[in-house]
């Protein structure tokens, strides 16, 4: 655990949206370390969400986007694959089961709490009822929402509060035992108390998996993350240990941003 193993590795990665002249991301190089939290910060439009959405190829729901470079995903057995080579729907499905994603707004499906968490498991082919029940319970416990939901598993997930819904979505993603979980500003729609609960949860999650989180909230990045990437206008301006970035950044631009001089 102490070792700094790579789980994903982004190399010379450029991304151009369909119909755009200029690439939104230019030659990005960013390592993602195993069992660490990597935060991506930067002003709106800097490309941090674009980069995050490339890491599970969710961009591919919309045609015409262009990729260059490579993004390697390291498997548990040490082998690696370039996820930009994937072409078939089946390969995307496998990728997304290993690289999960949590969105800005909670996105419970219009079904019961149990079915929400069991959804990804059922998609991956698990049909055995008792196995499903076991993994759903474990995922809900893992997302610190078991106590609140264990007596109402059959009720609609839409009846939960915003913070509970977001933890349910995390449980839903964790249930698949992904290697990496991508968070796209997961607390921007939540109140401070729910935000605290989610942050605590993310910290606990890194025991099991690796986290990449996009956030607008500088305190959140400094509280949570082990490594921070500062992005600016489609470039990766600086990447380092979070302490280093926030206490002693090597670039003037980074310092100006984290001290709030622009952004």
């Amino acid at each position: 655990m102490g070792k700094n193993n790579l789980v994903m590795d982004i190399k010379d990665f450029s991304f151009t949206y369909s119909g755009a002249e200029e690439p939104s991301l230019k030659k990005i190089n960013l390592p993602v370390l195993e069992n660490k939290i990597t935060a991506m910060i930067g002003p709106s439009g800097c490309g941090k969400s674009t980069l995050l959405r490339a890491m599970n190829r969710i961009h591919d729901l919309y045609s015409g986007n262009k990729y260059e470079g490579l993004i390697n995903l390291y498997k548990a057995d040490g082998s690696k694959e370039n996820i930009l080579d994937l072409k078939k729907e089946n390969d995307f499905i496998k990728l997304r089961q290993q690289v999960g994603m949590i969105f800005q707004k909670p996105t419970p499906f219009p079904m019961s709490i149990f079915d929400n968490v069991a959804y990804g498991l059922k998609l991956s082919g698990i049909k055995n009822r008792s196995e499903l029940e076991g993994r759903v319970e474990k995922a809900l416990q893992g997302a610190a929402i078991w106590k609140e939901t264990k007596d109402r598993l059959k009720e609609s997930a839409l009846g939960l509060s915003g913070g509970q819904q977001q933890r349910l979505c995390i449980a839903r993603a964790v249930a698949l035992k992904p290697r990496v979980l991508l968070f796209d500003e997961p607390t921007s729609a939540l109140d401070p108390i729910s935000t605290g609960a989610i942050e605590e949860l993310i910290t606990e999650l890194k025991e099991e998996l690796s986290v990449v989180i996009v956030t607008h909230n500088m305190q959140q990045a400094s509280r949570l993350s082990d490594y921070t990437a500062f992005m600016y206008l489609g470039d990766l301006a600086e990447y380092d240990k979070t302490d280093k970035i926030f206490l002693n950044p090597s670039k003037k631009l980074t310092e100006d941003y984290i001290t709030g001089r622009f952004g």
């Binding site: 729901l61 499905i93 499906f109 698949l176």
Partner: peptide
């Protein structure tokens, strides 16, 4: 909502699912 569809795709759902 787009994000609801995306989160289903992000769970490994096919278009039909």
């Amino acid at each position: 909502p787009l994000v609801l569809k995306e989160s289903a795709y992000a769970m490994g759902a096919t278009k039909f699912e």
